[in-house]
């Protein structure tokens, strides 16, 4: 086993352990933190395979953005002594069956698929190519979906402002 394999398995173990902890922890903020580590592990794997852009985006969007938002909303709503209720046993059984089923399916596909080592396509995923693809409007460009998504986000933001403004407190709030 080479060094990179050791590193990969370490990261994989960390991800699995923290994913499990994230769904089993009954303290809601801890679950969020475990999720952060699991997502950080994903970013680490991306770094390992030299997908730097993807890794950085993973960190910015998931670890820096979504997890912070989750933690923020937990901070606003719950108290430190609160614990989540223990789910019903049938829920536990059902979800574990589903989870195990998903895992076996994935493992089955992965082990049976022949990963033929593909010849290099000559396209390296550098910043320049990513940028040109993302904002290109010719063939192979993604500017249309990019803009559609941005409009969707804008709509979501306006919606959030509307919801937040519903109860405007009087006085100099």
């Amino acid at each position: 086993m080479g060094t990179s394999a050791i590193i990969f398995y370490t990261i994989a173990t960390i991800m699995i352990v923290f994913s499990l902890l994230a769904v089993t922890s009954r303290k809601i903020l801890r679950a969020a933190v475990y999720l952060l580590f699991a997502l950080g592990g994903t970013a680490a794997v991306y770094f390992m395979v030299n997908y730097f852009f993807l890794a950085a985006v993973q960190l910015i969007v998931y670890a820096g953005g979504i997890v912070v938002l989750i933690i923020f909303s937990i901070l606003l709503t719950s108290h430190i002594e609160e614990k989540m209720q223990k789910p019903d046993s049938w829920k536990i059984i059902l979800t574990s069956i589903l989870g195990l089923g998903g895992t076996t399916l994935c493992l089955y596909v992965i082990t049976n698929h022949l990963f033929a080592s593909q010849p290099s396509t000559g396209v390296e995923a550098t910043m320049t190519t990513i940028g040109e693809k993302l904002l290109g409007y010719r063939e192979g460009g993604y500017v249309l979906p990019f803009e559609v998504i941005s409009i969707l986000l804008l709509a979501a933001m306006i919606g959030a402002i509307v919801v937040a403004k519903r109860n405007k407190p009087e006085g100099n709030g």
Binding site: L29, F52, A55, L59, A63, I71, I74
Partner: peptide, 26 residues
Amino acid sequence: DFDIGLLYISAVSSLGVVGILLAGWS
């Protein structure tokens, strides 16, 4: 020396806030 060095730095520095949030809450 990534080709996305600046992006990487801003990504990583956004993690620090998690620590502050956790410290304040816990």
